[in-house]
Write a protein that binds this DNA or RNA. Sequence first.
DNA 1: TTGTAAGCGTTATCAC
DNA 2: GTGATAACGCTTACAA
Lengths: 333, 333
Amino acid sequence: MATIKDIANAAGVSLATVSRVINNGPKVGEATRQRIKKIMLEMDYRPNANARALVTKRSASLGVVLAEMLDPFFATLAHGIETVTQERNVQILMSSGSIRRETELKAIETLLEHRVEAMVVHSKALDDATLIEFAREVPGFVLINRYIEAIGNRCVWLDNVAGGRLMADTMLRQGHRKLAVITSRYQIDDPAQRLQGIREALADAGIELPESNIEYSTPDHAGGESAIHNLMARGAEFTGVLAYNDAMASGAMTMLFDHYITVPDKVSVIGFDDVLLAQYCRPKLTTLRYPIEMMAAKAAELALAYAEGQQPEAGVTFKYTPTLVKRESVKAV
Amino acid sequence: MATIKDIANAAGVSLATVSRVINNGPKVGEATRQRIKKIMLEMDYRPNANARALVTKRSASLGVVLAEMLDPFFATLAHGIETVTQERNVQILMSSGSIRRETELKAIETLLEHRVEAMVVHSKALDDATLIEFAREVPGFVLINRYIEAIGNRCVWLDNVAGGRLMADTMLRQGHRKLAVITSRYQIDDPAQRLQGIREALADAGIELPESNIEYSTPDHAGGESAIHNLMARGAEFTGVLAYNDAMASGAMTMLFDHYITVPDKVSVIGFDDVLLAQYCRPKLTTLRYPIEMMAAKAAELALAYAEGQQPEAGVTFKYTPTLVKRESVKAV
DNA sequence: TTGTAAGCGTTATCAC
DNA sequence: GTGATAACGCTTACAA
């Protein structure tokens, strides 16, 4: 592949001049500029980004660490990030952490070896201390979907507790008193926080949530099915189901349907996330909207801004709140 | 950030020795090796991938150009690629072409500037000639979901014509004679090829497919709804619907449901892709499985192998064939 | 087993 | 306006 030197030789000028043309630098005669440009095109020259990064110490690239590629969220999150990188001509280096501590660590390290300027990390497996350490070391380090107080100004996150409250309040407002919760069995923050929010709202209303009305399962369709199955097997009573996410909610509806329990007439169901599925399933799912694309774009902007030297304000954080999307799966009792 | 020189100084050895340790090179005393490793850890040294790529002319990175990030399908594609890159310690640089010629071109060019060794491209907007040119220039250039004869050994693709035939045959075998097709309005290969396959199978069976029983719409849920809506508005008669993808099929079922036409009792519906949605919707969707994850992994392997110097065999190509997944949405008439 | 030094493709600081 | 030339951080013959 042609180098800047080849171009210089072909044009009978020095490296410096070619470099100036490449970077639209000043002080180049219009004639030479055009001539060099033509030659670059002919030899289809492409500047070597590695060489450039080496000397400038800037790479015009953003590292992204996804918790899990298969997550339905992946596409939306990635798209949110890309809206901002594309307009700034920033390249995305992407890895998935596969929700394993070691892999996540490896992903971040590799990105750092590539000297990405900024980094958006969706970490589910790394502990706070490690993340704080990275944040201190890398100016453009931003976390998404996670809040760590010590580095709150590097966090773009969803208020899951408020989300939990909102789910519960929605049911309460429709007169439901006997609720069941089907949530993720994985020991990560989100499910715990949502459950906490639910408990708070119910406590405020003086309503009890028996432990036996909570089922922990895999956070997908099958998990929703088995959760309802188990709940019914043990004779739990409920008129409303609060699901950890839309997939579980949809699984729950499937299983209820199989037991001839119609939604929302006999039982109401509320989901979380508002992924496409929520609009497709029958009845259409009432759920909470998780503005992930907006949040991802925000995270990318933030990461890039910090990388460019903008100082994170102290005491600030980027908290988003889920909102209710009313569809058909919740009905007054 | 510490450089190799800093480490050498701290250890009182030369750059070369440190480099040997980094690369697990031979001929380094065990004592020095351990000492240097310890120092690297202490100074948390990270080799600069750019510098290394510059001198070795190899980057241990794979470029991926997605046609469109938002498609749920592409999470699976990305995951397939990652299964192979992760085990080989290869970094993924990802871009989306947004189905625009200019953007796709830009994405490929940028990846080339980063000197990725290999490249998996899902191009929907670029013409054959351009793609052939890139393939000639870049050894590790592989296309996914597209077949170009001149570079067949660089193509990992699905036999859409066979897919179309299979859809039609499935309906025919169940006794359906009046079929409707709802397909994508975008002028890309896939829908055209599937339609061709459908037409071939019907022609073989001596069955007619009136133009008025074909609807072109957006390839998503809403498109499926409106397609059925239009079909019914113009009084088209059919007992079976062949959809371009699962999203459209699901939209079709929704709209049929709204018209009190039960699936599959009154009308059968078959989809394409077998995304998660197909298992979630009611009735569960009978569809064709698109082995995208396997194909993506294959494409990545191929790209990496070619990049390492393996010679593409002439006359070979990597064609995959969709298979039928029977669920509940197709019934004998 | 270790060190020296050339060079990878750029940019940037000087001179001219 | 243009041209030398010294970095940038690393690998790799070739010496020692």
